[in-house]
């Protein structure tokens, strides 16, 4: 559909939240939790964090939570019977205030979950989620969306995008049918918009490298020494992958209780040493440099190749979360600069 541009008054946002709540939707928005900003359920606009670059953790858990029941089962003398999951019980979520990079990233995960197998769980959840992103008016040294194919006002993956004006009101772009449907709970809140030069309100994120160059270069440096140099200080934890909005690796676990059990899908990371450990005891990615290479290759070589998307949106979360200052942007620049 064509984008409809509207004006959402500052006061109207609160009303919108109330309406949506009343409509049985759960609203996830950035809230301040101690020193961090995380997505949390809100019932009022003043619960929303005001001044933040991105949330510490990404929005991916709304459709790809840190652990998820796939199904349950029961062991009997005759065999095993499997019970279904509670798909239909997923609540309807409205995400309010995700950044364009986050909104964009759900598409990257979706590409993986719809590659050789359509992951019903992921898409069912996503289906019930409406994404209202807010464009970025500022950035920090870790942001590099413009080098990863995005930009601070990108509407990709959003159903509605809000851009805050100097008045405190919002310039609202209604981008999809889903977005439109959401506005219908109270159409009067969305007023006719004046003509707005959105770019004026956006942060300037400098381009550090060209994403195509990076994609092209990564394929050529598989045997390069730089992986070792970059990853010497890597301690092999999963912090980067778990805060990453596009990392989609998971592990399958059974948890049993008596004769009953559930099968769970849990976040996993190619940075963890157990990730590729074979039953034999052999590990094809024996050392951390190989795991680090896998992480970068997957995002910049394999995903573009297989899913036609990059596995990185340039949010910079991994670098911020890294306990040992692994900086993905710096490392990508290194790669691009390899002669």
């Amino acid at each position: 559909m064509d984008t409809e541009n509207k004006l959402l008054k500052k006061a109207s946002l609160q009303k919108l939240i109330e309406k949506l709540n009343a409509d049985g939707k759960k609203i996830l928005a950035p809230v301040i939790k101690g020193k961090r900003v995380e997505f949390g359920l809100i019932t009022s606009s003043d619960q929303m964090a005001d001044d933040y670059i991105v949330t510490n953790q990404s929005v991916k858990s709304v459709a790809f939570p840190k652990f998820e029941k796939l199904f349950s089962y029961e062991v009997t003398k005759e065999g095993i019977t499997q019970a279904d999951t509670g798909y239909s019980t997923f609540p309807e979520f409205v995400i309010l205030g995700a950044r364009p990079c986050d909104a964009n990233a759900l598409g990257s995960i979706g590409a993986i979950f719809n590659w050789d197998y359509h992951d019903k769980l992921y898409f069912d959840r996503l289906e019930k989620t409406t994404m209202i992103s807010t464009s970025c008016s500022k950035c920090d040294d870790y942001c590099f969306c413009t080098s990863a194919g995005g930009h601070p006002g990108s509407t990709k993956g959003s159903d509605i995008q809000l851009t805050r004006l100097e008045t405190g009101d919002y310039f609202a772009e209604i981008l999809t049918e889903k977005g439109k449907k959401l506005t219908s709970v109270s159409p009067d809140l969305f007023e006719t918009a004046p003509s707005v030069d959105k770019s004026k309100y956006l942060a300037e994120v400098p381009v550090k490298f060209k994403v195509d160059e990076a994609v092209a270069k990564v394929k050529t440096v598989f045997e390069n020494e730089l992986w070792l140099d970059q990853s010497l200080r890597c301690i092999g934890c999963g912090a980067c992958a778990f805060v990453c909005p596009t990392c989609a690796c998971f592990d399958i676990q059974d948890e049993t209780k008596g004769k009953n059990g559930i099968r769970l899908r849990c976040w996993d990371s190619c940075g963890l040493s157990l990730f590729t450990l074979h039953t034999s005891g052999h590990n094809p990615r024996e050392v951390q440099s190989q795991r680090w290479r896998q992480r970068i290759m997957h995002k910049f070589a394999y995903m573009p190749e297989r899913q036609n998307v990059t596995g990185c949106v340039g949010c910079g979360r991994c670098s911020r979360a890294c306990p040992v200052d692994m900086n993905i942007m710096e490392h990508l620049i290194n790669i691009v600069e390899v002669k």
């Binding site: 062991v75 209780k257 008596g258």
Partner: peptide
């Protein structure tokens, strides 16, 4: 232990 707790696999 699990069996005693009736949580046997």
């Amino acid at each position: 232990v699990l069996a005693l707790l009736n949580e046997y696999a």
